[in-house]
């Protein structure tokens, strides 16, 4: 589902943010991407979204070579990738329902599709009672659930999450992670960048560790790391 070959990324003339990254992620995998701030996690994620182009190497996402992908095709690539962020990125003047529906409206889905899929995905994330609530009426965990619903409503084969629990307390984070787990069970490939040690250690999923731009560990049923 995701393949990176000898991928390097350099910003300006600084030292590289990513070095010779070789990663294969199969369909249906659940992967944690761990590392300190500045280790290259965000660069990794943004390369997959094609927010950035690599300086070297090849990246294949959902069967497409995204380095050679033409600019006008990028939106169609992104429809295959759901994204979740630390800051939720919800529109404050729209309700939960409207925030999720917006994602379908702007890719031209019909009203009928919107009316059936939005309530369904909000039920999946456990917010069937909060459909008409605005983001500032929701707790952080609930807002993150709305944003996950928005990322997943189009049933993308890949879900990327960049520090999804960075703003949440441990109990809430646990709920979010089990939601990712449920989404993963539907066959969706899930990649979560995090530095939430407890979470990674308790889930026992594949762990890819980055340090100063190098992949220093790629371990199935792994833990966050040793001593650091």
């Amino acid at each position: 589902m995701i393949t990176m070959r000898k991928v390097g990324k350099t910003y300006g003339t600084d030292k590289p943010a990513l070095h010779d990254v070789d990663v294969d992620i199969e369909q249906g995998e659940f992967v944690f991407l761990v590392g300190h701030s500045g280790s290259g996690k965000s660069t990794f994620i943004r390369l997959l979204q094609r927010e950035l182009l690599p300086s070297r190497g090849q990246i294949v996402v959902a069967g497409q070579d995204i380095v050679k992908l033409k600019n006008w095709k990028v939106p169609y690539l992104r429809r295959n990738i759901g994204c979740v962020f630390q800051d939720f990125k919800l529109l404050p003047n729209k309700t939960s329902y409207e925030n999720v529906a917006f994602a379908l409206e702007v890719i031209g889905r019909s009203k009928h599709v919107i009316r059936t899929q939005v309530p369904e995905v909000l039920r999946l994330v456990g917010l069937e009672d909060k459909m008409e609530s605005y983001p500032d009426e929701l707790s952080g965990g609930e807002q993150q659930r709305v944003s996950i619903a928005r990322a997943f409503v189009n049933r993308p084969p890949i879900l990327l999450a960049d520090e999804p629990t960075g703003n949440l307390d441990p109990a809430t984070s646990l709920g979010i992670m089990s939601l990712f787990n449920r989404i993963n069970k539907t066959g969706t490939t899930v990649l979560v960048a995090t530095h939430d040690r407890e979470m990674v250690d308790s889930m026992r999923k594949r762990v890819i560790a980055l340090e100063n731009g190098y992949v220093v560990r790629d371990q199935h049923r792994g833990v966050y790391g040793y001593g650091d």
């Binding site: 979204q49 939106p75 990125k89």
Partner: peptide, 17 residues
């Protein structure tokens, strides 16, 4: 700009934006 960011994120086509 926020809406535009989200539109790009979820794959709205350039012409649509």
């Amino acid at each position: 700009r926020k809406e535009i960011g989200i539109m790009r994120l979820v794959g709205a086509s350039n012409s649509f934006i």
